[in-house]
Design a binder for these strands. Structure first.
Lengths: 220, 220
DNA sequence: TTAAAAAATTAAGTATGCTTAAATTTAAAA
DNA sequence: TTTTAAATTTAAGCATACTTAATTTTTTAA
């Protein structure tokens, strides 16, 4: 059993790689808000324990064992998020932080009960896929990043990045919840700002924000 | 905010004192399964941080601040136990261990939602009183320890000691759940063994076991 | 292709919460 | 009351997961 810290590292590495980016020491350190030295240190330990493939200066990847742990933690995180929101009525922008704490202290027995209670859900409140008991991910709907959308088309929100509470709060505020529709009105070439319109009104989204919203084109 | 370890120490001290026993260094160490040296160490830290009154060789007691933390943790523990059992259908003898983990990672916001969901319950599945948001304990029903019961009388179970999973499993096995009736058939003077009878059958309980069951006399 | 910049690692040191062993204080028994 | 036993504390040391500062390796750009 990995420690709390080790679980966090494994999750971070998994998510970096899943996002198609490389899991560099400094990117891991940045995500976990620790020094590069701490990350290097931990990568060595994780390697020694067979959770990652790690060669000095050559980057890191997960072993099957490490991937299994990462998926287990993601499962716990995402089931908690959904449970807290659906059953205990916590807000969309509150569940991430709470789940982050509970996930490390949740037995397999308990998480299976939660899974059962929710009837084996496939996606969490932010659209992220929930691995099943064996670590198998459900197939996701096709989506593109909002910063790759086109003018004058209608989209629906498939997924949002849930790693930033402030961002989630902002999405909620402008009515950008899961499965809601909006139109891309204009994209400014100069800086990539995107003007969107939904039932809450019209908003300008910076490309940095838009990168964190994943959408699918829909008919009018 | 106390750390996880500190919360555990405060809870242990509170429970020792609540039980009318003194909270000696070694009793705390025994409960928490650490060395006496570790307990001494921690008592010094807790004292420095204003959670306990501690004088070398003179024992320890909680300050108002320490008591508040202990009651907060007990609240979280007991609400989780009830929630896990009632909502997520975990077994009577499973909830203690799970709650022990979750209690430390539960925000006030979350525990208030759980309290609300359960409609502000007053007792946990083992009969222990649940402190309210302000730390006020509900009034308990009168009870005596089973080892002080009398022959040929009928009792009902008001509370059991929930600190030992094996014991709880045994209680469940012999039908000794909360609010169930049984009769004390015989008490052996030689060693204090108590013969009890309920709808599951007749059993001999050692005085060590009987000390962990709290009962109230009822009419036939 | 080499110099500078960036990334990664090593080294030294810290806080927390443990351990065992030795020393001290208190309590109990002779 | 003194000796012995029990409880407690102190001392020294360990593992985990951090920190900053210095060093090394890799990458980028001139």
């Amino acid at each position: 059993m990995p420690t709390v810290s080790k679980e966090d590292y494994l999750k971070t590495i998994y998510q970096r790689i899943e996002e198609g980016e490389q899991a560099s020491t400094s990117s891991i350190a940045r995500t976990l808000k620790v020094s590069n030295a701490a990350a290097t240190d931990m990568l060595k330990k994780l390697s020694l324990q067979g959770f990652v493939n790690y060669k000095k200066y050559k980057g890191v990847s997960l072993t099957a064992k490490g991937r299994k742990e990462a998926l287990s933690l993601l499962r716990r995180h995402r089931l908690w998020e959904l449970f807290l929101m659906k059953v205990l009525k916590l807000k969309w922008d509150e569940v991430h932080k709470e789940a982050e704490l509970l996930e490390h202290k949740t037995s397999e027995k308990l998480i299976d009960k939660i899974d059962q209670y929710l009837n084996h859900p496939k996606f969490d409140p932010h659209g992220a896929p929930i691995p099943d008991k064996r670590g198998v991910l459900p197939k996701e709907k096709k989506f593109i990043r909002l910063d790759a959308a086109k003018e004058n088309k209608i989209y629906t929100i498939v997924k949002v990045n849930d790693k930033d509470d402030e961002l989630i709060r902002y999405f909620a505020e402008i009515g950008f919840k899961l499965n809601t529709k909006f139109e891309v009105k204009k994209i400014f070439n100069i800086d990539g700002t995107i003007t969107v319109k939904n039932k809450k009104g019209q908003f300008n989204l910076s490309p940095v924000v838009a990168k964190n919203i994943f959408v699918r084109e829909v008919r009018k």
